[in-house]
Structure formats: C-alpha cells, structure tokens
Amino acid sequence: MKRAKRAATKTAGEAAASEDEIFILQFRIWLKDVSPMVWRRVQVFSTMTLREFHGVIQVAMGWEGIHLYQFV
C-alpha cells in the first residue's frame, strides 16, 4: 500500500486512518467462470466511495453500465 499524502503528527486518541491520510489501494478484479481468465489491476484512492469504485470497474473492463455487480 502506498501513501499518497503524509499525515501530520498523531495523538494517541486519533484513529489509524485520519482525514489527512489518503492511501492508494490496489485491486485485482477478475471474472468468475470465464476461460481464459479475464482480469484487471486498478489503483484507487482510499477515499473513493463504492459508487465511484463501480465506475472505475466499468471503465477498466470496457463495460457500459449494463452489467450486474456485487461488492463482497
């Protein structure tokens, strides 16, 4: 995991991921039961919502928003 922005000094009571810390998350996305395997690797900011992440997947897979999806 890479840090996109370094946080200021933390006090003992602060949560591990404050608003000042933004991480880059990397995901490997693949289609089940497809041969040969179809997959993509994407990197997104940790502040991204699931709705925004869905949009990233649509673009990465070359889809047009008509496929069913589920986050697990």
Rank of each mutant, 00 (worst) to 15 (best):
M1I: 14
M1N: 14
K2T: 10
R3S: 13
R3A: 13
R3T: 15
A4I: 10
K5Y: 08
K5L: 07
K5F: 09
R6N: 14
R6M: 14
R6W: 14
A7V: 09
A7P: 10
A7D: 10
A8P: 15
A8Y: 11
A8M: 09
A8G: 14
K10N: 06
K10R: 07
K10D: 04
A12F: 01
G13N: 08
G13W: 05
E14D: 11
E14S: 07
E14K: 00
E14P: 03
E14M: 07
A16S: 13
A16R: 10
E19Q: 12
E19R: 14
E19Y: 10
E19W: 09
D20N: 12
D20E: 10
D20Q: 12
E21R: 09
E21T: 10
I22P: 01
F23R: 10
I24S: 11
I24Q: 15
L25A: 09
L25F: 15
Q26W: 11
Q26K: 15
R28Q: 13
R28L: 12
W30G: 06
L31E: 05
L31W: 02
K32R: 08
K32E: 04
K32L: 03
K32Q: 00
K32C: 02
K32M: 01
D33K: 00
V34L: 00
V34R: 01
V34G: 00
P36F: 00
P36K: 02
M37G: 07
M37C: 12
M37I: 13
W39S: 14
W39M: 13
W39G: 13
W39E: 12
V42K: 00
Q43S: 08
Q43H: 07
Q43V: 07
Q43F: 10
Q43W: 03
V44H: 03
F45T: 13
S46F: 00
T47R: 05
T47A: 08
M48F: 10
M48E: 03
T49F: 01
T49C: 06
L50W: 03
R51T: 11
E52N: 09
E52G: 08
H54M: 08
H54F: 08
H54V: 06
G55N: 09
G55S: 12
G55C: 09
G55P: 05
V56C: 03
I57N: 04
Q58P: 10
V59D: 14
V59I: 07
V59A: 14
A60K: 05
A60W: 04
A60V: 04
A60R: 02
M61E: 04
M61D: 00
G62K: 06
W63Y: 04
E64T: 11
G65V: 00
G65D: 08
G65Y: 06
L68E: 13
Y69A: 05
Y69H: 06
Y69T: 05
Q70C: 12
Q70R: 07
Q70V: 07
F71K: 03
V72S: 14
